[in-house]
Amino acid sequence: MSDPRPGDLLCVRALTAGYGASPVLFGVDLAVPAGGALALMGRNGMGKTTTVRAVMGLLPAGGGIVFDGMEVRGLKPHRMARLGIGLVPEGRQIFPTLTVEENLVATAAPARPGLAPWTLERVYGLFPRLAERRRHYGNAISGGEQQMLAIGRALMTNPRLLILDEATEGLAPLIRAEIWAVLAVLKGEGLSLLVIDKHVSALAQLCDGVAVMEKGRVVHAGPAAAFAADAALAARLLGV
């Protein structure tokens, strides 16, 4: 297992994980540079969400998970969050009986030294629609608004790395475009991103690199723009 490269905020090496007696990951390697963005892609069922769950401490895992130079494999999810990893989970998982504002406040954490703090006002500036819905309950807003809320909730933890599992799944094109624009703003402010999504062209515009998974392994890693430009490669690795 190789050491993290200089400049990597998150480094995953030889990661193994599964559910009970059923292994899913077979030595996953990937890295997210500080201030950069990595796209994690693959067909359904290839291990992307399992990788995220293992990184976040939601599953027992083997191998190495290094965050900001510290080995963190085996830490509980709340410890990972305190270290500075924010998760936007697949399915959003917002609190349906709390208001938009209560959802945001529920996860708020202290600001990190040297970084601009995430506050209600800053999240509302990023997503004005949430400000308009601040008194609505989580189950009374649209799917797109719920995704905005899930991102805002993760930002309120004041992360250094934001992980998005299915960043724009099931969203209307206009909402997808708004989400991609917001992620570009966040990256421009220096926030590191690990993004799972199916939209190759949008990911290529946002991300520096891509890692493509197949049957629990990373089978391709390289520049995101080059991957998007190789239609045959993308079709072979992502087509159904």
Rank of each mutant, 00 (worst) to 15 (best):
Y19K: 10
Y19P: 01
Y19I: 11
G20T: 11
G20S: 12
G20A: 07
G20D: 13
G20R: 14
A21H: 01
A21N: 13
A21P: 06
S22Y: 04
S22T: 15
P23Y: 05
V24C: 07
L25D: 03
F26C: 13
V28L: 03
V28Y: 00
V28K: 02
V28H: 02
D29R: 07
L30W: 02
L30G: 06
L30V: 12
L30M: 01
V32C: 10
P33Y: 02
P33F: 07
P33W: 04
A34M: 09
A34K: 14
G35M: 09
G36T: 13
G36S: 15
G36H: 12
A37T: 09
A37V: 14
L38M: 12
A39M: 06
A39V: 00
A39K: 00
G42R: 09
G42A: 08
G42S: 03
R43E: 06
R43K: 13
R43L: 11
N44C: 15
N44F: 11
N44S: 13
G45N: 10
G45Q: 06
G45S: 07
G45I: 05
M46V: 15
M46G: 06
M46W: 00
G47A: 11
G47H: 02
K48E: 10
K48I: 09
T49N: 02
T49G: 09
T49E: 11
T50S: 14
T50Q: 09
T51W: 00
T51G: 04
T51C: 08
V52A: 04
V52D: 00
V52I: 15
R53V: 13
A54R: 07
A54S: 13
A54W: 00
V55S: 01
L59D: 00
L59N: 04
P60W: 05
A61C: 05
A61E: 07
A61F: 02
A61G: 10
G62N: 13
G62C: 06
G62S: 06
G62M: 13
G63L: 12
G63N: 11
G63K: 01
G64I: 04
G64M: 03
G64R: 14
V66Q: 02
F67A: 04
D68N: 15
G69V: 14
E71N: 14
V72S: 09
V72K: 01
R73C: 10
G74Q: 10
L75Y: 02
L75H: 01
K76H: 01
K76F: 03
K76T: 09
K76P: 06
H78L: 04
R79E: 13
M80G: 00
M80C: 02
M80T: 07
M80N: 04
A81H: 08
A81M: 10
R82N: 14
L83C: 05
L83V: 14
G84M: 12
G84P: 11
G84Y: 03
I85V: 12
I85H: 03
G86T: 07
G86R: 11
L87G: 03
